[in-house]
Design a binder for these strands. Structure first.
Lengths: 247, 247
DNA sequence: CGTACGTTTGATCTTTCTCAATAATGGTGG
DNA sequence: CCACCATTATTGAGAAAGATCAAACGTACG
C-alpha cells in the first residue's frame, strides 16, 4: 500500500516535524505492525494503573489525557489531536500514571509497544524523533501548570482556545479562523481547573468582549490578535517546526 | 579517577534507576566531558528563550524550573534535587521554553549538549535511560497540573511536601522524617499557584492539625500517614525503581 | 547594631464555587 | 417524522476560598 494511504503516514509526518529521517527510517516507521480501529467517545486508550502494551496513534477524532484526585475530581492534562501518538508518554514506563480517553468518535491505529521500543533501539534517528515528540508534550504540560496555576479564568480559557487553534493549524486541520471545539463545557472546565458553571460565564464574557463568537460548540475567532493577548499566549512552548523540510 | 569520585556517578545512578546499562554504557557515561562549577542561589542554569548548549547535572544544592506570565507572575513547574539532570528537557529542543534557576548554593557538572546527543545516538541503552528520565519528569509535570488545578491549598501544599520527601528519600538525601525545605514561602507559593500569605496560613494550619512540625525551614513529618492522605499523595507518578538492581 | 529579607498577622475585597432551577439540544425509538 | 429523554448549557443567589493591602515582627548577616 502506498504510504499516502497508510495510517502511519500521520505518525511519520509528526516524527519528521523535528528530526530528519532517512529513507530507511521512514520505511521502518511505515512498516510498523498496526491495527486500525473505530472508537466511540469515552473509549479508553490508556488506563491509569495498567501496564501499557501498545501505543495508539490518533487517525481521526480527539482524545484527552486526564488524572483523578482521590475524591474523584478530574483534571485534563492535555488534549490530543489527529496525528498525535497518545502513548509515547508511557513507552518505557511500566504502569500508566494517567488515562487517555476519546473525546469524540474516531479512528486509531494501535501499534505494539514492543515494536516501537525495538524501532527506537535500532534506529537512532527515529529514537530522536520520538524523543522530540515526548519533549514537546512535556513542554505543553509545563505550560499547563502555568496556565492553571497563575492565570485567571478568562486568560486560562482563552489560552486553551488559542493552543487548540494553533495546534490544529499545525496539522492543517483548521478551516479558517474557526473550529468545532470537540468537548463539553464541563470537559473544558476540567482542562482549566475551573467549574463548568464558571466556564460558561467566562465563555460568555469572552463573547461579550468581542473576542470570540460561538454557535453551539463552534468557536470563531472574532479578534485573534486580542484573544492571544488576553490569553497571554505565545506559541513558543509548542516548539512548532519553523519550516517543513522536504524529503 | 575512580568512578566513585566522579561527579557523573550521580548521573549514572539516576540513569541506571530504570534501565540496564552494560559496562561499556556505564564507561561512556562516566567519560563524558564535564566541568564542575560552584553556583550561588539565583544562578540560571537554563534561561527561557535561549538555545541550550549544555546540560547541568545537579551535584549538590537545589534548583527549580519556572515560567513567567506576561504580567510577571511566576509559576514553578518542578523542583530539582541533587542527581537530577536539569536540562534533558531541552536536549533536542532549539529554544528553552522555561528557565531553571538555583534555589540554594550548590555545585553543578556541566556537560556539552552535543556530547549527550552523540551518546544517545551511539548507545541505545543510554538513550533509553535518558528517555525514561524524561518520561518521569513529564509524569511529574502532569501530577502538578492536577495538583494546581484540582486540589485546595491544604492538599496542594501537603502534596509538594510529600513529593519532596519521597524524592529526597529516593536519592538517600533525607535524614529521617524531616528535612530542610530549601525555599522561601514565596517560592513555595509559586510552586503551588497560591499567594505567599496564604501559604503561610496553610502551613500553620497543617502544623496546628499536627501533621507537620516546623522550625524555620525545617519540616518534620509529625504524622506522615495522615499527611499523605490529606495531600492525596500516591507516589506512583514518580515511577520509582521497584528495586535497585545490582551491577 | 542596622538593614534587608522573610515571616506572621489582621481586615477587607474578589474570584470562583455551590446549589438549584430552567432552558436548549441532540439523539432515539416508535 | 415526531415525541421523549438524557445531556448539556444557561442563569441566579449566596457562600467560601484565596487574594490583596498593609503593617508588625524576626532573624541572619554584613
Amino acid at each position: 500500500m502506498p504510504p499516502e494511504n497508510n495510517p502511519l503516514t500521520l505518525l511519520l509526518r509528526k516524527l519528521r516535524q523535528h528530526a530528519r529521517l532517512d529513507e530507511a527510517d521512514q520505511q521502518a516507521v511505515s512498516a510498523l505492525t498496526h491495527t486500525v480501529r473505530k472508537v466511540e467517545p469515552g473509549t479508553y486508550l490508556v488506563r491509569e494503573g495498567q501496564a501499557p502494551t501498545n501505543c495508539a496513534v490518533l487517525i481521526s477524532g480527539f482524545a484527552y489525557r486526564h488524572k483523578l484526585t482521590g475524591n474523584g475530581d478530574r483534571q485534563i492534562v492535555s488534549l490530543q489531536i489527529p496525528g498525535d501518538p497518545t502513548d509515547l508518554q508511557s513507552l518505557y514506563l511500566d504502569v500508566a500514571d494517567h488515562s487517555v480517553q476519546m473525546l469524540t468518535r474516531g479512528e486509531i491505529a494501535n501499534i505494539p509497544r514492543s515494536e516501537l521500543q525495538a524501532l527506537s533501539h535500532a534506529r537512532p534517528h527515529v529514537a530522536r524523533a520520538m524523543m522530540v515528540a515526548i519533549l514537546v508534550d512535556a513542554s505543553i504540560f509545563r505550560e499547563w501548570v502555568l496556565n492553571v496555576g497563575r492565570r485567571d479564568a478568562r486568560a486560562r480559557i482563552a489560552h486553551v482556545l488559542c493552543e487548540f487553534a494553533v495546534r490544529l493549524d499545525g496539522q492543517k486541520l483548521a478551516r479558517g479562523r474557526a473550529y468545532e471545539l470537540p468537548m463539553t463545557q464541563e470537559q473544558l472546565a476540567d482542562a482549566v481547573g475551573l467549574t463548568s458553571v464558571h466556564v460558561n460565564r467566562t465563555l460568555k464574557l469572552l463573547e461579550a468582549e468581542g473576542l470570540i463568537k460561538r454557535d453551539r460548540r463552534n468557536i470563531q475567532f472574532a479578534d485573534w490578535e486580542r484573544l492571544q493577548e488576553v490569553a497571554d499566549f505565545n506559541s513558543r512552548y509548542l516548539h512548532l517546526a519553523p519550516q517543513q523540510t522536504g524529503a
